[in-house]
């Protein structure tokens, strides 16, 4: 099997691309509703962004780019 990976890869990032996207959406939600930063809401948001629901939307975004 060919084990050569493409050389063009910016691999110095602390976050993955999906973490960047999720972070952006999370920031928007927390800006619109600052209450989400407190109490049980941060953990609920963690669950939301780790859920199949979030994967479906991220996956749909990826698909539109690939099409």
């Amino acid at each position: 099997m060919n084990n050569t990976l493409p050389e063009y890869k910016y691999d110095k990032n602390p976050k993955t691309l999906s973490e960047v996207m999720i972070g952006f959406v999370r920031n928007i939600l927390e800006t619109i509703c600052p209450l989400l930063k407190y109490g049980p809401f941060p953990k609920l948001l963690d669950k939301l962004f780790a859920s199949q629901f979030a994967r479906s939307f991220l996956g749909s975004y990826a698909m539109l780019l690939l099409m």
Binding site: P6, K9, Y10, L17, S18, R55, L58, G59, A62, L66
Partner: peptide
């Protein structure tokens, strides 16, 4: 597959994603 496409494939295919965070 979904995370691989998002985190590895998209940065290869789209130059603007092959960049700093």
């Amino acid at each position: 597959p979904v995370m691989w496409i998002l985190d590895e494939f998209l940065p290869r295919k789209f130059p603007k994603f092959d960049a700093s965070n």
